[in-house]
């Protein structure tokens, strides 16, 4: 490819529209939010520009740090589960016969064709007390009960009590894993696709077992993909507010919900802006760690 310095005009034409779009609809609004974050809340919820650090000071109070810490944990668990499920899935697709790869990838991307809100609502229908999962369990229970009665043990199974699956932290994690799994699978797949199979064959030939080959050969080779997938999943998870809002119980507030509360019912846009920027700074730090990690010049997979 040509060096951009040799043809600045053509380069400008290609990069112009995207830059214009980003500056006008991303950087400028972001700058407004940044200015807001130094402001204050008027008695009716107006945003007053005051240039003080009070909002950041408030954001660093224990209660807010606690919410950030909890969000970090929940996002961490969701990311780990995504990795554990996404890794074999990505490997399966990457090693599948060529004609199957695209259909399989399509299935991974398919959920994006439906709106996130609808997909989250459908989890309510699955998980609630009188939801599909509890109905299935009840059916299983009844059938087992019938079989036991037939075998002469009528009281063994007892009565079925539906499980409390919705409105708690596990429901939030299930929702987060479901929503973000494709963001883990795609970068992993991109890395594994490029993986030279002969390394794996060599490892197995030379006496390493499957587990050792996995951890000592495959994982180091696809590390950029793992890193991209983990970061993408984590950053998206930690900022989410819809999933905890709809599936969470009374203790599921995440940092995204706190920010939404400030822009909504509390009408304190200034404090909400400060919280948003705090979250953004944290994200930048994570990204910076990634860049430092990926310094050896390897492609990152996406």
């Amino acid at each position: 490819m040509e060096d951009w310095r040799k043809n600045k005009f053509a380069f400008g034409i290609f990069i112009g529209p995207a830059t214009f779009w980003l500056v006008l609809f991303f950087m400028l609004p972001l700058a407004v939010v940044w200015v807001y974050s130094f402001g204050g809340r008027g008695p009716q919820g107006q945003t007053i520009i005051t240039f003080s650090l009070a909002n950041y000071q408030r954001a660093l109070e224990w209660i807010h740090l606690g919410i950030i810490w909890k969000s970090a944990w929940i996002a961490g668990i969701a990311t780990l589960l995504c990795l554990l499920m996404g890794f074999p899935l990505a490997k399966g697709i990457a090693f599948a016969p060529a004609k199957w790869k695209n259909p399989l990838l399509l299935i991974v991307i398919l959920p994006f064709w439906t709106n996130l809100l609808i997909r989250t609502y459908s989890w309510i229908a699955v998980l609630r007390t009188r939801g599909h999962l509890n109905f299935a369990l009840e059916w299983l229970h009844d059938k087992t009960d019938m079989a036991m009665t037939f075998l002469g043990l009528p009281e063994l199974m007892g009565t079925f009590h539906p499980l409390a699956l919705l409105y708690n932290q596990s429901a939030v994690i299930i929702g987060l894993v479901y929503v973000h799994l494709p963001f883990m699978v795609l970068p992993l797949y991109a890395s594994m696709e490029k993986l030279d199979r002969s390394y794996l064959e060599a490892s197995l030939d030379l006496g390493a077992g499957h587990w050792r080959t996995l951890f000592n050969v495959t994982v180091p080779l696809v590390k950029p993909g793992i890193l991209s997938g983990v970061l993408l999943t984590y950053i998206l998870s930690i900022g989410s507010f819809l999933t905890p809002d709809l599936l969470g119980g009374t203790e599921s507030m995440m940092i995204g919900n706190l920010i939404a509360q400030q822009f909504g019912s509390s009408r304190d846009w200034a404090f909400g802006s400060a919280l948003s920027f705090l979250l953004m700074y944290a994200t930048f730090i994570i990204l910076w760690i990634k860049t430092v990690n990926a310094k050896d010049g390897e492609a990152t997979g996406i």
Binding site: I67, Q261, S265
Partner: peptide, 8 residues
């Protein structure tokens, strides 16, 4: 603040 405390 009371509401955030309730949630947290």
């Amino acid at each position: 603040e009371a509401w955030t405390a309730v949630q947290a």
